[in-house]
């Protein structure tokens, strides 16, 4: 038994190493002097300094954050409402509607992205900020519904009944009783949605307009055109931002279930 325990520990550590190799390489090379990624590494922060004057990456980062922020607000609002409706009411077509929420994560993004490109072009919505927000909200909706519904599972409906019997209206109950209780779930869902949007590449790639790209799209273009360690520097910053977000989520949403 002790033997097995050690094997499983060593195995877990190997898997973790495998998962972290590219990230550590990315970070290490962002501090490397050589433009051609020559090793061994010579310490330098020149690529971070170069970032400060790269206006293209600045605007792409700003666009990414704008899209992520706006689509997070919209999808959290709509997704929470849907989760509430599923929790409180039984109605015809409920099963169907529950299934309908999942296509954004069960159809390959390539197909959703190209379909949006075709349709938005056809009806005149076009590409750019508004198109990306349309797409990102649809992608993060399922995640919001799942996370908020998970929190609702442990909600005691007696609280709502009590509020109603004391004379609160439907919406008063919603905003003064249910939503405050749900808040940790809603915040976790919002952080989730934000991370999904910030990392989204495929949909953004098809909906990026010539003058409007996001950071992942800009990184992809840079990789294909021949890249510099500036890309490493900005990617390192993005990784730290994403990880901070995840740690934020873990404050509100218990990973790994019961311990």
């Amino acid at each position: 038994m002790i033997f097995l325990k050690w094997i499983s520990r060593i195995y877990l550590i190997c898997i973790l190493l495998f998962l972290y190799v590219p990230i550590l390489v990315m970070i290490a090379l962002s501090f490397n002097e050589s433009q051609l990624y020559r090793i061994p590494i010579e310490w330098s922060t020149r690529w971070y300094e170069a970032l400060a004057s790269n206006s293209k990456l600045h605007s792409a980062t700003l666009n990414s954050l704008t899209v992520a922020l706006l689509s997070t607000c919209l999808s959290t609002l709509m997704g929470t409402a849907v989760a509430l409706a599923f929790f409180r009411h039984d109605f015809r077509a409920k099963r169907l509607l529950q299934v309908m929420i999942f296509p954004p994560i069960t159809i390959p993004w390539l197909i959703i992205g190209t379909a949006m490109l075709v349709f938005f072009f056809w009806v005149g919505i076009g590409r750019g900020l508004h198109a990306m927000i349309l797409g990102h909200v649809a992608l993060s909706l399922p995640y919001v519904v799942i996370v908020v519904s998970a929190r609702l599972k442990s909600f005691d409906s007696a609280l709502e009944d009590a509020a109603k019997s004391l004379g609160a209206s439907y919406w008063q109950t919603t905003f003064w009783v249910t939503v405050p209780w749900l808040m940790p779930g809603i915040i976790a869902a919002a952080l989730f949605a934000f991370a999904v949007s910030l990392d989204q590449f495929v949909i953004s790639y098809f909906l990026a307009a010539p003058g409007f790209t996001t950071l992942p799209v800009e990184i992809y273009t840079a990789i294909r055109k021949g890249f510099t360690p500036e890309i490493n520097a900005i990617s390192t910053l993005v990784i730290f931002l994403s990880m901070l977000l995840l740690l934020g989520v873990s404050r509100f949403y218990r990973f790994g279930g019961r311990n």
Binding site: P22, I23, V25, I223, S235, V238, L246, F255
Partner: peptide, 22 residues
Amino acid sequence: FLLIILPFWSNALVRIFSWTMV
């Protein structure tokens, strides 16, 4: 558990890019 899902939170594109350097 957190350590395992952390890298999955970093951009997919960035991860693939790192593999090219490896």
